[in-house]
Design a protein around this nucleic acid. Structure first.
Length: 452
RNA sequence: GUGGGUAUAGCUCAGUCGGUUAGAGCACCAGAUUGUGGUUCUGGGUGUCGACGGUUCGAAUCCGUUUACCCACCCCA
């Protein structure tokens, strides 16, 4: 009965795409994967569920509130909320079998039980890369990470993004110099959102925490230092009062910035921004944040940094690492909103084979020929009117339709219609292969993203 | 978790003072057109007005409760 029918719906905060968009999403994901491989990263997949004690070893009060956690029998389980904590567990567990520095990429879904909002999801994909060292990890790795971000975004066809770089040692060092290190964690968070809430409100919040007004002023002045990388570094040096941590931070930042340009990242795509702090407390040095120049309000689509001792909860070994996470679901959401997605490239199949007679034998044979030649082919078997068959081809956005009717069977040919240009030719089946290939190459060259 | 808002067709939304058979655009289906799609023309409403209860001769409309969703905060990709 009708009352028994359940209303079909998708949970809020869970992205569900139409096939054409899913195709684009998958292409973006595979572009990322390809680029990660190109840079020497190895694939990794870990379970979505872990024992709660493993995932929450590190978690503070806030994280715990936003987690999907449940029990099944006697086991207390948690869904992963990022890919970094599972990585830490993985590296600690398989320490003896891994080769360091261990470079891995992982693209997978993560879950956060927070209120969903525009551009914010409860289930979303992260595409992570991390480099883990055994005991030590060279600072140049910190510079390669942003170059990889630049590389993947460029590979997608994106231009208007900025990678902002900072070093938390500088901020910690400053807190030490001002003798306000006890407020460090909360102050970091306020500093981090200064762009959003404004200087005055940030000043108020810092004072409310109990930091003296003149120190707040000094802190905000410091954060606001701007200019080219060179100018900023020299201004930072002038700020130094011989505080060791502060100077180490400046040194690291300098190394990173220099090396980033060696990696070929153009000046306009990255900058030092002293207000980038990152809320997560496991970062200990370099931090990154990437956002779209036109949509800063949606927030970071890619962020990460250096952590000196990630696996500390699972092992005595010191395992420093550096990495970033691209918020793939959010990235896709923004690209869609900005109308940047080039749907022309999302063709589901290359060829739709339409049998025009009762016998499907020749149509199947032709489809097999296409498939053995790595062309995606679909055969339409339904007994519908011709118009419906054409309309189907039109709706699935297929670039070629191949008619196999009486004439074509007799002459061992195929009538091939280019659905984009409308041009139709009747050629031998072997010739059809090269016609299709030639035309697909043109489509293949166009970028997934069209940002003009 | 805190504060504010919304709920009518697959989607975006109208719906007057409470009044008769609840509408528009897009989408979808059928026909014009049995080997040529997109455009056009013609026809078709595909709905528990979120749910439950109350007021009333009469409720999409007023009142109460509830659920879902959206926005902001918190936090974050």
């Amino acid at each position: 009965m009708d009352n028994a029918r359940v209303k079909a719906r998708t949970l809020s905060g869970f992205m569900e795409l139409m096939p054409q968009d899913q195709l684009l999403f998958n292409k973006i994901a595979s572009t990322l994967e390809e680029h990660y491989r190109l840079c020497g990263f190895l694939p990794l997949d870990t379970p979505i569920l872990e024992n709660s004690d493993v995932l929450l070893a590190k978690a503070g009060g806030e994280t715990e509130k936003q987690i999907y956690r449940f029990t099944k029998g006697d086991s207390d389980l948690t869904m992963r909320f990022d890919l970094t904590v599972p990585l830490a567990k993985y590296v600690a567990l398989h320490y003896n079998d891994l080769v360091f520095p261990f470079k891995r990429y992982q693209i997978g879904k993560v879950y956060r039980g927070e209120r969903s909002q525009r551009g914010r999801f409860r289930e979303f994909y992260q595409a992570d890369i991390d480099i883990i060292g055994d005991g030590e990890l060279a600072i140049t790795n910190d510079a390669e990470i942003p170059s990889i971000i630049y590389g993947v975004f460029s590979a997608l066809g994106l231009t208007d993004f900025t990678i902002r770089i900072n070093n938390r040692k500088i901020l910690f060092g400053l807190f030490l110099m001002l003798s306000i290190e006890e407020y460090a964690e909360e102050a970091m968070r306020i500093v981090d959102k200064i762009e959003k809430i404004g200087r005055d409100k940030a000043a108020g919040e810092l004072r409310d925490m109990g930091i003296a007004a003149e120190k707040v002023e000094l802190l905000l002045q410091f954060i606001a230092i701007s200019g080219s990388s060179e100018e900023m570094l020299s201004q930072l040096r002038a700020f130094s009062r011989g505080e060791e941590l502060f100077e180490r931070g400046i040194h690291e930042l300098e190394c990173v910035v220099k090396a980033v340009s060696m990696f070929g990242v153009p000046e306009e795509s990255y900058k030092i921004d002293l207000s980038i702090a990152r809320g997560l407390d496991y970062y200990t040095g370099t931090v990154y944040e990437t956002s779209f120049d036109k949509h800063p309000e949606i927030g970071s689509i890619c962020s990460g940094g250096r952590y000196d001792n990630l696996a500390g909860h699972y092992t005595d070994k010191k395992l420093p690492g550096v990495g970033v996470s691209i918020g793939l679901t959010r990235l896709f959401f923004i690209l869609n909103e900005m109308n940047y997605l080039n749907r022309q490239v999302s063709t589901p199949v290359d060829v739709l084979v339409l049998p025009m007679t009762e016998s499907y034998e020749e149509a199947i044979a032709f489809a097999s020929l296409l498939r053995t030649n790595h062309l995606n082919a679909q055969i339409y078997f339904e007994d519908k009117k011709f118009k419906n068959k054409m309309s189907y081809a039109n709706r699935i956005n297929v670039p070629f339709v191949a008619f196999i009717g009486e004439d074509e069977i007799k002459q061992r040919t195929v009538s091939l219609k280019n659905f984009i240009s409308g041009v139709q030719v009747t050629v031998s089946r072997e010739e059809a292969l090269s016609v299709i290939r030639g035309s697909l190459e043109e489509i293949g060259d166009t970028k997934i993203i069209n940002c003009t």
